[in-house]
Structures are given as structure tokens and as C-alpha cells.
Design a protein around this nucleic acid. Structure first.
Lengths: 199, 199
DNA sequence: TCTTGCATGCATGCAGCCTGTATGTTATTC
DNA sequence: GAATAACATACAGGCTGCATGCATGCAAGA
């Protein structure tokens, strides 16, 4: 009984090992952290050797970037799904925020995207990753709302950055045990106050 | 001509080496990063040996914690100075924000306090450090303002956390080249809107 | 279709570096 | 002068990145 050689094509092999490495790395980077996870441990969990790792990724940091990129894409997809329905700008913002909180509640996402991500890859790179996956949506929505006169005229880029910052910190605080409802209330109040009150 | 042995007391020696280590470490942690700075490099810059380092600090992370603590204290002191004058709550918030931006403009503070700090020490530890150095001021001010009926009644802790998050992200964005004025405008608008408008 | 040359995927071993500790030595302090 | 603190040095273990070597898949021509 010899193990039948799987006879996989090169494409299949590459895809399989890359996926195994990304999955194993994600698990370990979350359980411990980027710094405290060694490549020997990762490849052991993935069932490959370090040679395979360094064949597919330039270095440990590139592997981490792959993990972060996938995670950012998943979060963006959940938000897009929640804001796809034709809602008012305000409702869209609130729905997007809730979807963001739900997405960030997945184990490890705060560490990957909000702690280790910025420190390891730099805020610049991480911003680019975010922008690549529908991070534009927020800014464009705000710009449209301001253009339409629904919102106070404020610098769009700064406003988008600040709303994003609030959501990020709320996700961290919630994971640390803070009241999700309280943070939702505060952010909702800020959003509410930015819209021009039609008296 | 022999170098006269300085005949320093133990207290002086300890203080001098600790200061030299903290200063050298700060410089290098800022130029490069925590992860990419090795202890051999630090002790060389400080003019001591690794033995001295591990005598005064439990490990590299403890040394980093010392650097961060000093930096947080310096920032808190600048903010306290700016908000010492008896101002209205709103004016105090705005002055504190400006003082925070000015303090965070010092080279390396964003990296130490906002990037490497949370990743290396954990957000929990960093929060404790912040709270230890007048981080309470903000929350207490907000609570008083709400109590006095000047501000919308919102969860105090969450509100303080969110205002802090906005300031932090603004500091990062400004260092990355964003318009300081735009971010100041946005945060000021949010603060303004939180106060009950006396019509 | 077969085979032959090449590229791709991967395994292994090595060199260099870094961290933390243990042990030894010198300078203070009591 | 004994004990303790401050430091120096040496060592063990581990990790990263690379270079080399091998085997398999692939492509092109006879």
C-alpha cells in the first residue's frame, strides 16, 4: 500500500501550499502575535517546510501581509453586503458601522488589522490595503452626502478618516470588554449631529 | 595621566546608565522600530554593555515600556499645561486637542505611542500607562460637563475613548501629510455638536 | 507520441544575528 | 571587612534569510 502520488498540477500545488501557509499563519499570528510566532512553527502547522514558505513569500512579513490582505477583504465584503441595499446616506453609515462591528468580532481581526498590521506593515501600507478593498466607499458616500447638502460641509478625507478611527477604536474597546451599545450610541450621535437638522 | 575614577555613588550610577539606555533606545526605536532595533545596537549607542541593560531592565520589552512611559508622561504634561487655565469645558477640550497635536508632532511620538506601543505592550497596558498620566482628565471633564447639562448625555467612558481615538488618528494622519487644519476642523465640529446648543 | 531540455516547486543545510541567562569581577555601602 | 549592588563576559538556544540541490511538471520538437 503505497501512498498514491497525488499527481497534482503545478497550479494546484501552489494554491494548496499557499492556502495552507496563510491559514496556519493566520491562526498562529492571532493566538500569539506576529513577533512571537516563528516560521518553523508556521510551516509545521501547515505541513510544509520553510523552503516552501520562502519560495512563495519573500519573507515572513510578506506572509503576514497576505494574511492581512485576506482579512481586510473579508471585512470589506461584509460591509459592502450590508450597505448594498439602497438606503439613505445616514442609514447606510449606521448599517455599515454595525456590519463593521460584526465583522471585527471575528476572532483575531482586531489584532491583525488594528494592532499588528499597522505596526508591522506601517500605517501607509495598511491604508493602501484598506483602500484597495472598498475603503473608498465611505469617503465617496460622505462626499455625495455633503454635495447633496444633507451633511455639514466638512473636509471629506479628514471626516472619513475620523469616522474610521472611531469605528476602529470602538472595535478594540468592545473586544476589551467595553459596552458595544455605548460605543454604538456615541458614534451614532456623532453621525446624527453631522447631518443638517431639518427643522 | 590616568582617568580619574569619577567615584560616583551607586544611585548616580544607576540613574546615569538608566538615562543613557532610555535615551539611546528612544532614538533607535524611533529611527528604525522596536522590532528592527537590537539590544547590541542600543547598548553601543548608550556606551554600556548588555549586562548593564539586563541588570536594570527585565528584558527588551521592559526597556521599551520605560521609553513609552516617559513619552506618555511628557505628552500628558504638555496637555495639562495647556488646560490648566480655568476655561469653559468646550474651550478646555479644544485647547487640550491643540496641545495634544503639538505634543505629538515631536519626532517619533506617533510611532512610540500609537504604533509600536499598542502592538508591543498590548492595548491594555498602554491604556494603563495613559490613564496613569492624566488620561483621567478628559473623562472627568466630560462627566462634569454632562452633569452640568452642558453636553448631550452620552456614555462618558465611550465618549472619552472616541475623542481620544479621533485625536490619535488625526496625529497619525497629520504626520503622514494630511491637513492638520482639516482634522482640527472635523474634531472641533464634532465637539461643537456635542454641546447643547443654546438657542 | 516520445523525449529532451527547462522551469517550477520544494527540501536541506549553513551563516549570521539576536535574546536571555548564568557566572565572574569590580566598585559601594554598611 | 562583609555584603550587596553594578556591571562585564561567555554561553546556549532559536530564528531568519539564503544558497544549493533534487524531483516533478511542462513545453516543444522529432
Amino acid at each position: 500500500m503505497q501512498e498514491a502520488p497525488p499527481r497534482r498540477s503545478n497550479r494546484e500545488r501552489t494554491e494548496a501550499t499557499r492556502a495552507a501557509l496563510l491559514a496556519a499563519a493566520r491562526t498562529l499570528f492571532v493566538e500569539k502575535s506576529y513577533a512571537e510566532t516563528g516560521t518553523p512553527e508556521i510551516v509545521a502547522a501547515a505541513g510544509v517546510t520553510r523552503g516552501a514558505l520562502y519560495h512563495h513569500f519573500a519573507d515572513k512579513q510578506a506572509l503576514f501581509a497576505g494574511v492581512v490582505e485576506a482579512e481586510a477583504q473579508a471585512v470589506a465584503a461584509e460591509i459592502d453586503a450590508a450597505t448594498a441595499a439602497p438606503l439613505s446616506t445616514k442609514q447606510s453609515l449606521l448599517s455599515g458601522m454595525d456590519a463593521f462591528f460584526a465583522a471585527m468580532a471575528v476572532l483575531g481581526r482586531t489584532r491583525l488589522l488594528l494592532l499588528d498590521g499597522p505596526a508591522v506593515l506601517g500605517p501607509k501600507t495598511l491604508d493602501e490595503i484598506d483602500q484597495r478593498h472598498g475603503g473608498r466607499t465611505l469617503r465617496e458616500g460622505l462626499a455625495a452626502a455633503i454635495e447633496a447638502g444633507e451633511m455639514c460641509p466638512l473636509p471629506t478625507d479628514a471626516l472619513a478618516t475620523q469616522l474610521s478611527a472611531m469605528s476602529d477604536r470602538a472595535a478594540l474597546a468592545i473586544e476589551a470588554g467595553a459596552s458595544a451599545e455605548d460605543h454604538r450610541t456615541v458614534i451614532a450621535a456623532v453621525i446624527e449631529s453631522l447631518f443638517i437638522s431639518r427643522t
